[in-house]
Structure formats: structure tokens, C-alpha cells
Amino acid sequence: MTLTMFTLNAFYGLALAMNMFIIASGLNLIFGVLRVINFAHGMFYMFGAYITFTVAKSWGAPFFVGVLAAAVALGLIAFAIERLLLRHLYDKEHLMQLLFTFALVLLMSDAAKMIWGTDQYSVGYPPGLGGAISLGFVAIPQYQLFLCAVGPLIAIAMWLLVDRTRWGRVVRAATQDREMLAALGVNVPMVYAAVFTIGSALAGVGGALAAPRIALVPGMDATIINECFIIVIIGGLGNLWGSFLGALAFGLVVQFGTVLAPDWQDVLPYLLMLVVLLIRPWGLLGRPETN
């Protein structure tokens, strides 16, 4: 592989990693605090992309207004779902929660069909990000560079929010002992609602940012949820920087692996997960479960 190809592939891998990180970090946050495995997260991603299409293409608003709209809309949808439905299931067994989020997938996919039909859609690149930047020996698409910049920014923002604010301390405390937290006078249900809202809004942003580089079709949610689970498991359940590392590993392995061993493209992410789990069953930055 020449230096040109290596650089280009590395950027592609990083861009994919960052796009996936934005989505997976939301899933991870929700799991870390609520202990709910949200199967509907992929559907939230798809809604993010479709909402961006409606706002940016049908209504003609700037692309980034579409991204913001996707975040806000998914936040609102998630808030309503949490307050009206999900909160009744925290004390129930895990199976009930799984069935509930799976039911959401089915309901939302029918809702998407009613709202957007079954056509295939396309969102253009935002102005100024549709070309490539020449670095002399290689040209890198601007949008990929943009994704490489946005991913770490979101990671840092989440780290500041969770590790450096009072609200973040409350969230972290909620993962440790919610009864004690409630006894201390913290409104734990609202903390849960806020976490579910933020996590889901991240799925919306991830979908919105993916929209210019892929075709929007019904069923685009199908594989994304598996990939998010892989990233979260590789990184360590509930760990923000773990998800970041997991996404990096995922993006680079998928990109370089598909180039070098195309016949293995389907199983590469699973192989990666298998290897990590064999060496560190609790994930790269996770902690072993202590009972």
C-alpha cells in the first residue's frame, strides 16, 4: 500500500469511526445510567437522517439547521417516550425493557413509512464541504475531515458535561446508587429522562451527519444498531472514552480490513469484538464486574 493510499484509507477509517462514535456514545450513555439496552437507537439514527432531509432539502434550510432540528426532534421524541412509557419499566425485568425497545423499532419504522413513504432520498453536502482538500500527495474529501473534527469535539463536550459539572456528578452517582441519590433529595427520574433525551439526540445528530454521505432508505437502521453494540462492547460498557477507542478500532479495522481482505468484510467487526472479548472480556476501558 502506497503512502497516498494509506493516508486516504486512514482518514476514511477515522471519519467512519467518528460518525459511529457520535451514535454509539448515545447508546453507551443510556446504558451506563439507565441500564437499558435501547434497540430503538438505530431507528433514532434513521429518524435523524430523515428529519435532516425534510428540513434541509424539502424546506430548503441550511444543512446545519437540519442537524440541529434532528437533535431537537429526537430529544423531544425520546423525552416523551421516557416520561410516558419507559420509566414504568425500570423496575421490571430486562426482558420487558428489551421487548419494549424492540416494539419501538417496529412502531417507528411504520411511522417513518407513513411520514416519508418508501422512496429513496439524498441530502447534499453542505456548501464548502462537498469537495476535497489537496495535501500535495493526496486529496482528502472535506466532509471526512469535518467528521474527524466533530467527533473529538463531541467526545470532549460529553466528557466536560459528565466529568466536570455538578449535573454530571449527579448522573455518575445515579449509576452507582440511585436509591441513595433519591434519598439525598435529587430528582432521579428527571436525571434519567435527561440522560435518555441526550443519548437519543446524539443518535439523531449521528444520523444527520451521516445523511450527506449515504443514501437514505427505509431499513438504513438495520445494521447500525449491531455496529453500535460492537463499539460499546469493545470499549467497555458505560465508558465514554472506551466508546471513543472502540469506535476508532471499529472504523480502522473495517476500512483497512475491507481493503486488505475484502472477502472478510462481513465478519470483520465481529472478529474484532471476539478478539477483544477474549483478551479483555470487560472491554478496552471497562472494569471487570465485581459482585
Binding site: T2, T4, M5, L8, N9, Y12, A15, L16, Q120, S122, I214, A215, V217, M220, T223, V254, Q255, F256, T258, V259, P262, Q265
Partner: peptide
């Protein structure tokens, strides 16, 4: 949905034409 592993290879192969069976969303 992600064709980035393939695109640079085609560009580097120096072909003057592509015969493709990529339909619908794959093509997009």
C-alpha cells in the same frame, strides 16, 4: 453503505471504465 474502502482502489487501478451492478442505494 460505506464504499470508502473500494473507491480509492478503483481510482488507483487506472481503469478507463467501470462495469457496475451497484443498484439503488448502493449506487447513491
Amino acid at each position: 453503505t460505506d464504499f470508502n474502502p473500494f473507491i480509492p482502489q478503483v481510482m488507483a487501478a487506472g481503469c478507463d471504465g467501470v462495469l457496475s451492478g451497484l443498484w439503488g442505494p448502493h449506487f447513491v
